[in-house]
Amino acid sequence: MYSRVKMPLALLALGGIALTSPAAWAASCCGGGSATSLILPKFSQSMLDVSFDMESYNGFWDGDGTYRNDPPGSDLNQYRLNLGYAMRLGSRWQAAVVAPYVWNSNQYAGLSSNTRGLGDMTLGVTYEAFDGIKCVWKVKDWKDLVPATYFGLSLTVPTGISPYDDVVNSFDITGRGFYRLDANVMVDKTVYPWNATLLFSYGKYLSRDVNREYGKYVEPYSKTLGDRMLGTATVGYTLFLDNMDTMTFSLSYSHLQEDAGDIDGRVDFTTEMEKNSVGAILAYSTMSREWVYKLSFIHASPYSGQGQNFPVTDIVTVGVSHVFR
């Protein structure tokens, strides 16, 4: 259920970047709604971002990586409204907060459920390891090949509704219930009209006590989810329109995996997962680069070997960002 939601590459034209992380654990059976973190363009003061994800489920990969269909007559979807704000803290430092609001819509042949709630919020701080604009039109010198590199830390805060809250059943879930700290590195290079971006993220969950499962109190225990790794490669092409607005087309490939967790010191295999996905992103930016409209489609292939212990989903995202200079 993770996929990438990428901000428009048009922003890169200003030395800024749009990016990161993935939408979320979407299926209500797995927890949902973690958010997207934001990267503010260079020389901008702040940014507001609003996006809407529509994630539909199409079976899952079992623990052996074999693709399995959903039960007959099922139609499973999750919708997320993501509100984000990023602001500059210093010439090389910025911070962002993203909050998703999640709707779960699960229709089975014998059961129907529609629930909603706040998802897990993300707080992030990013360091830009460069001062000037790293986008060039021509490579005249080796210095023109130096990419824009970002180092970030993000904290996922369990503000969503998790299995450990006072909930009735798994259909209510909008979050995973764990704090997670991610270290993020992003390397971006633009030589117009082409752009390439690599992102790597490594996250560690904080262990927590559990004394309730789906509203029922149980014998307390300690639980941790496994370390999480995300790698994404994106290639984009920017068209400059007559009025100097830009249209950027991008393709991406993502690999996400999470190791086995831990329950009272024992290995918990049930949360170990893997997912591969591809994406297509279209971004339209005004000449001033203050408004960016985006549309993306993230697809996971419903074939064996493309993932493990995870739902197969497609995610359509529409969104808009406004940058304040």
């Binding site: 704000y85 909050a99 609001y101 503000t159 450990y164 979050g175 309730r212």
Partner: peptide, 25 residues
């Protein structure tokens, strides 16, 4: 932002922020 979304009707917001290990069976 958190307050707004909380007021908007989110339940159980704080349960996971400060998890309990107390036996409440």
């Amino acid at each position: 932002l958190t307050s707004l979304l909380t007021v908007a009707g989110c339940e159980g917001l704080t349960d996971d922020l400060t998890p309990s290990g107390d036996d409440e069976r």
